[in-house]
Write a protein that binds this DNA or RNA. Structure first.
Lengths: 136, 136
DNA sequence: ATAATATATTACTAATCGAGTAATATTAAC
DNA sequence: GTTAATATTACTCGATTAGTAATATATTAT
């Protein structure tokens, strides 16, 4: 099994999409969130924390604390969320900046992969979280 | 570093594209091939062997033996080659057949990923090896 | 026959990464 | 102070990748 998007990144998308469905002012505990989305509590907590550090989530500590979406789900793209949780996948190794290709310009695969990858990333950044809300 | 296409699969593409440039009847030893493409001889040999088993390459054993392309490079797609060397990557884990999703139909990410992945695979199967020949 | 030079085939290793778990600290409501 | 929440770090297990090494087998030239 090899995937462009890791489990953690997938979970992050689902967490944000789920929170986008909360009413304004409402919060949800990580415990509830992890139950609803079938993610372990520890794992969910770690992801939530990363998302909070980036500013797109807000959290309330202490008893009756919880989590809520701060960003506007109509402007927040899938790629935004993915990058927050470390998305760095490429179509092919030769697309990484520090890759030294012995064929430089003559390799037609390189230019082909660049184009295809751009298409994928464009799609991921055009799609916004509000289109993926649960229960709407 | 995480890539959809592994090094081995990338090498396979390059090997096939390189062989597509040989004159009819000509063969090239794995040793030469590995030098030209900057792949270790052992690794190249293993890949060549897989490609030969699938039928798209022919090999001649013994002294003055070598390797040549049997398939028609105008009909051989990138996806064909990738699959021969074990390409099985997916955009997201939920796309694997044996993945049990607790959300079944209600998850909008699932349908989105299916569509995007189909686009990628279509592109990879429309592109044929002859478009990627070296030195033409 | 034998030496030389190819491919064929398998086994091994080292490193990295992903996924998840566990434990503890900190914070805030009551 | 107790309870229940997030914050933070460390750890483990397993799978995968990339590459190496070693040996077997095949073919041809001499």
């Amino acid at each position: 099994m090899n995937t462009l998007i890791s489990r953690e990144q997938d979970y992050a998308l689902r967490i944000v999409a789920y929170l986008a469905g909360l009413k304004s002012g409402e919060t949800l505990s990580v415990k509830e969130l992890s139950k609803k989305l079938a993610i372990s509590k520890s794992f969910a907590a770690r992801i939530v924390h990363k998302l909070k550090n980036s500013g797109i989530l807000g959290t309330v500590q202490g008893k009756f604390g919880g989590v809520f979406l701060k960003a506007n789900p109509e402007e927040l793209s899938l790629l935004d969320v993915l990058k927050i949780v470390g998305f760095n996948s490429r179509l092919n190794a030769c697309l990484y900046d520090d890759y030294i290709c012995p064929f430089e310009d003559i390799c037609k695969f390189h230019t082909f992969f660049i184009k295809l990858e751009k298409q994928i990333l464009d799609t991921l950044s055009k799609k916004k979280i509000n289109e993926f809300q649960f229960f709407t």
